[in-house]
């Protein structure tokens, strides 16, 4: 009781202090005017056939994807690593049982639900893939596409069962392998231009997308006469695979049957 009162008072004081500071102009003029030149710089170079003889363009009409995988590419690679680590942490808790195949064979929901779900899962996958492939043209990209696709196995887990998914080939080992392969692919795509430049004896940068004045190599800016954003499309597709497989494997482990999951905590009843 006393603790609740103390917390409530602290909360009110916290909000009032922040509000007073902001009201007196603690954040400066809002929105901050000094950030606009940065935005103009990014917007000007994202898809510009004129700017400084095309020397610093990302060749993607969608500025957000260009920022994510070109302007701040290294940042995003490490965020992918954080994502990878969080999933690893979740899997490590169930390392004993995660590789075991379910013995129980639940029947799942009714036929009507199953058939409509089977149709919907195809639609979900199609939306996800198109979100990744169009990431450089319209709002979207690898992260969003992976999250969309990860909905499909969750729905399948509820409507069918875990053993159904395992029989269909969505298994722990496969998903972990797919996720790791996608992460390695992201690393290789980031290094590709630098390695090629090293082999040809010219300058190249890690995470380089389009040719620069001092580094003549780069990804092709168009695929089938549509702006592909060079490396952005490659990164988006690989990121989609990594995110989708990562979430799928966690949901698989989380839906382990209670009987199997209890084995994980056997022997931990004492000593806590």
């Amino acid at each position: 009781m006393l603790r609740d009162v103390a917390f409530a008072v602290t909360l009110v004081v916290f909000i009032v202090l922040l509000a007073v500071a902001t009201g007196l102009g603690g954040l400066g003029p809002l929105p901050p005017p000094r950030l606009r030149p940065l935005a103009v710089n990014v917007l000007n170079t994202t898809y510009n056939p004129y700017y400084a003889a095309r020397n610093f363009t990302a060749d993607a009409p969608e500025a957000v994807t260009a920022v994510v995988w070109d302007y701040r590419g290294l940042d995003t690679v490490f965020e992918t690593a954080v994502f990878y680590g969080a999933i690893i942490g979740a899997l490590a808790l169930y390392r004993e049982v995660s590789k075991r195949v379910e013995e129980s064979r639940p029947r799942g929901l009714s036929t009507i639900v199953k058939v409509s779900t089977a149709v919907m899962v195809v639609a979900i996958a199609a939306v996800g893939v198109s979100t990744a492939m169009h990431g450089q043209l319209t709002p979207g990209g690898g992260f969003q596409a992976g999250s969309i696709i990860a909905v499909a196995p969750v729905v399948l887990l509820v409507v069918f069962s875990k053993s159904f998914l395992e029989k269909a080939g969505v298994r722990y080992a496969k998903m972990v392998a797919l996720r790791s392969a996608a992460l390695v692919g992201i690393g290789l795509a980031a290094l590709a231009v630098a390695i090629a430049a090293g082999a040809m004896g010219c300058w190249g940068y890690v995470l380089q997308n389009q040719p620069k004045p001092d580094a003549p190599l780069g990804y092709p800016p168009r695929a089938l006469d549509v702006p592909s954003g060079g490396s952005l499309m490659v990164f988006n597709v690989l990121e989609m695979l990594a995110v989708a497989a990562g979430f799928t494997v966690v949901f698989l482990v989380l839906s382990t049957s209670e009987k199997l999951a209890k084995e994980e905590v056997v022997g931990e009843e004492h000593g806590y």
Binding site: L35, R36, L38, A39, V42, L43, T46, A63, V64, T65, A66, V67, V68, Y71, R72, D75, T76, E79, V82, F83, A86, I87, G89, A90, L93, Y94, G141, F143, Q144, G146, S147, V243, G246, F247, V250, V253, L254
Partner: peptide, 25 residues
């Protein structure tokens, strides 16, 4: 401004991954 949107985009997915980890714990 596209930069805050790009920062938030990755933050949302990382948030989701951390939430999944916490739910597992």
């Amino acid at each position: 401004d596209p930069i805050p949107q790009a920062l938030v985009l990755t933050a949302i997915v990382i948030n989701l991954a951390v939430t999944v980890f916490l739910a597992t714990v």
